[in-house]
């Protein structure tokens, strides 16, 4: 019996997995199903879809999906679109370490600190507006905080470095010899990008887009601190938080969390489904 199990790979060493697996099941999988179950038991009593019906019939609630998408989709597209050319240049640098270190700072400091910095820096008397007025680039201070653009900019500041570093790791995986071969055969820069690099990069870009989108879609602290959390930036996580910790309606909060998860999973699944249509071979050069 023991030997039969060991042949299939189950022995004392495999058992070392058990604590970690049990931990993830207890604190990740179980809460998820608990929340799913709870969402069907509305606070008012009974069992059913009442929470979901309430969500999709109250514009104050269902609008949050649209508002979150209005932020997350453009920000993610912008971040990915800027990441690709920058990553392609940085790949050629001899010592990119200083640049990548600077870009890691906003990710490490987190959204709360970036929000506090933005309130100072982008505020009506902040350095940015002061510079714009001084150089005559603008007649009046730009309104960049406590509205849509505040949240948008904060998602760019923390999201761009994340997207860029992820893209960079995919770009550096492409063998430079392939591009040299293209150049030798007379392809110009744009043709090399379009015909060689982009097809090899697309699968990685799809994953980058997914991860960045999911991060942007769950924006929370900056939507409260830098946006208008009662208006244009009442994103879905704010609605879930309000339901849970201000109305103490945990079933409703769970329902919103489930809706949030399904939108994220839906978009990710659609993209990864499309990704399977793309080229998925080695990005290295050479034979074979």
């Amino acid at each position: 019996m023991r030997q039969a199990l060991a042949r299939r790979g189950f022995d004392g060493v495999t058992l070392l997995l058990l604590p970690a697996v049990l931990f993830v099941i207890a604190l990740f999988i179980y809460p998820f199903f608990y929340g799913l179950d709870l969402s069907f038991h509305p606070k008012t009593g009974g069992v059913g879809l009442a929470n979901y019906i309430r969500f999709f019939s109250d514009p104050f609630l269902y609008d949050t999906i649209g508002k979150t998408l209005m932020l997350a989709v453009p920000v993610t597209l912008l971040n990915v679109a800027f990441s690709v050319p920058v990553a392609l240049r940085v790949r050629l640098m001899a010592k990119p370490r200083l640049l990548t270190t600077i870009l890691v700072i906003p990710i490490t400091l987190g959204t709360v600190l970036v929000a506090e910095g933005m309130l100072n820096y982008f505020g009506p008397r902040g350095w940015l507006n002061r510079a714009l007025l001084e150089f005559g680039l603008s007649d009046a201070p730009l309104h960049l905080i406590h509205n849509y653009w505040g949240v948008f900019l904060s998602l760019v500041i923390t999201g761009f470095p994340f997207t860029f570093l992820l893209t960079l790791s995919y770009v550096t995986g492409i063998d430079p010899a392939l591009e040299r071969a293209g150049a030798m055969l007379g392809a110009r820069a744009w043709e090399r990008f379009k015909l060689i690099i982009l097809p090899l990069l697309l699968p990685g870009l799809a994953i980058t887009f997914c991860l960045s989108f999911v991060q942007a879609f769950s924006v929370f602290p900056s939507a409260v601190l830098l946006g208008a959390p009662a208006g244009v930036t009442r994103v879905i996580s704010v609605a879930a938080y309000t339901a849970a910790f201000e109305e103490y309606d945990y079933p409703m909060a769970s329902a919103i969390a489930m809706i949030m998860a399904s939108v994220q999973i839906g978009i990710v699944a659609a993209l990864l489904g499309a990704q399977s249509l793309l080229y998925r071979g080695p990005a290295g050069g050479g034979k074979g």
């Binding site: 809460p31 998820f32 608990y34 709870l38 999911v214 769950s218 879930a240 969390a257």
Partner: peptide
């Protein structure tokens, strides 16, 4: 690691 913390955080906090 892929699911954002706020998404699984609310059911987790409830538990």
């Amino acid at each position: 690691m892929l699911v954002p913390p706020i998404t699984f955080g609310i059911p987790l906090a409830t538990v």
